[in-house]
Amino acid sequence: MVLPAAVRAESPGLWTLAWRRFRRDRVGMISLVVVLLFVALTLASAVGLIASDWAKEVGVSYAPPSFVGPANVSVPDERSPARDTSTGAALDDTDIVDPLREELIEIRKALAGGSSVESRAATLPFGGDKWGRDVLLKVVKGTETSLLVGLAAALLATVLGTVFGAQAGYFGGRIDDFFNWLYSVFTSIPYLLLILAIAAVLNQKGTSTVVLILGLTGWTGIFRLVRGEYLKHRVREYVQAADAIGATDTRRMFIHILPNVSHVVLVQLSLHVVLFIKSEVILSFLGFGVGVDTVSWGSMLNEAQNELLIGNWWQLAAATLAMAVLVTAFSLFTDALRDALDPRLK
């Protein structure tokens, strides 16, 4: 017997249906585009297509943004006007003559070597920092750091949470008790305190350290949800059927059940990217995050904090804006993703 075409046609799968629902969500689509733009920016910057020369001191110190116009205080070959005034004040106060002053001026003249000082721009597209580096390029580099840290840490936390949750929910019994114990140990220490304690002990800055700290401490929320899903699924008929045809525990856990709970995992992954980006910014701001030779939004905010006092707002604005746009887009994207993958909600 030949089935009519309409019945034979393959019914759309979970992802096709989710994508159809997602496409109808206008806010979700716009935020997806924004997130993809940021990812593209990050990739381009990571392979060195753009912003590879961010560390070049192209402008004068604290060069204002082009749309503001050049600063009317002339800054000759002194790098930091703030530092200059402070030494001046110190000299007035104490009458101690800096014994190296003459030599330092000589060295500075020699180092400047004519050309590099002359070619410094008075304004930059979005201003410059203390060393005259382009803030716009720094933001691109900072985006790369923060987004990569957020993604990598979220991936690590999700893998840990999923594997732990799968074990606990699937096997139950002693294994479940053990992982629940681990969960209660990790959750009874406040998240930021735990991160700070580990950062204090490692005492070793770097991007991979931050990823490890955030990933190894941040799996608890994902674990709880995935465990609940596995508890529900392990008694379902399709899993029993898999058991009947001789599928191993691992196969049942990760080939049969995992695709059925993957929507939960995906939404959690997306949520945690946002959470970890925020945590990385705080860690780097406090100086426990990425290394000194790496730019992140956190380290930019740290510099911007002092710059604001002398009226230089652009680095603060740039880092804040980039972070706010990415995080807002990512949060809205996560909401849309959840709605698309789990239509029962709302």
């Binding site: 705080i282 905010l301 604001l308 804040t320 807002t328």
Partner: peptide
């Protein structure tokens, strides 16, 4: 609220302290 939440707590502290305090 979504936009407000996406701005780092650091920025709130820096800006409010600068504007209202300084």
């Amino acid at each position: 609220c979504t936009v407000g939440q996406s701005i780092s707590i650091l920025v709130y502290i820096i800006v409010l302290q600068y504007v209202l305090g300084y």
